[in-house]
Design a protein around this nucleic acid. Structure first.
Length: 135
DNA sequence: GGCGGAATGG
DNA sequence: CCATTCCGCC
């Protein structure tokens, strides 16, 4: 059986919203590739029900902290159908983003990274909401 | 914890 | 290309 891993990303307490399709594609990813990690991170950051897991840092624009690395890895693994995912592996993928200039590390701060929105300015992203509280 | 090389796979 | 897996090193 291979149908055990569709995107049934339904939060129990919320509505049945789905992230728009434009979030899954960039100028550099034509057609239908798989979800990229930084898309997924942004997706979690959009939703307030994941604020105990991952959230924007006040003060620094684009900076976010992973409050529960285990949970983020679990969610990412579920999305990609990789049950053996963990923060160690996830963070390796994050580290590859340093050279691609999508992310960099906020040194000294645990589980804290920062988006280079400099590069992440895409026509498909009208305005990413970077408010810690939707404020 | 965090880094980055290397092998592997889609 | 973009991860995933594994791992030695700091």
């Amino acid at each position: 059986m291979k149908a055990g891993c569709s995107i049934v990303d339904k939060p129990e307490g919320g509505g049945g919203y789905h992230f728009p399709e434009w979030a899954y594609k960039t100028e550099s990813s034509p057609g239908s590739r798989q979800i990229q990690l930084w898309h997924f991170i942004l997706e979690l950051l959009q939703k307030e029900e994941f604020r105990h897991v991952i959230a924007w840092q006040q003060g620094e624009y684009g900076e976010f902290v992973i409050k529960d690395p285990d949970e983020v890895a679990r969610l990412w693994g579920r999305r990609k159908c990789k049950p053996q995912m963990n923060y160690d592996k996830l963070s390796r993928a994050l580290r590859y983003y340093y050279n691609k200039r999508i992310l960099h590390k906020t040194k000294g701060k645990r589980f804290t990274y920062k988006f280079n929105f400099n590069k992440l300015v895409m026509p498909n992203y009208p305005f990413i909401n970077i408010r810690p509280n939707g404020e």
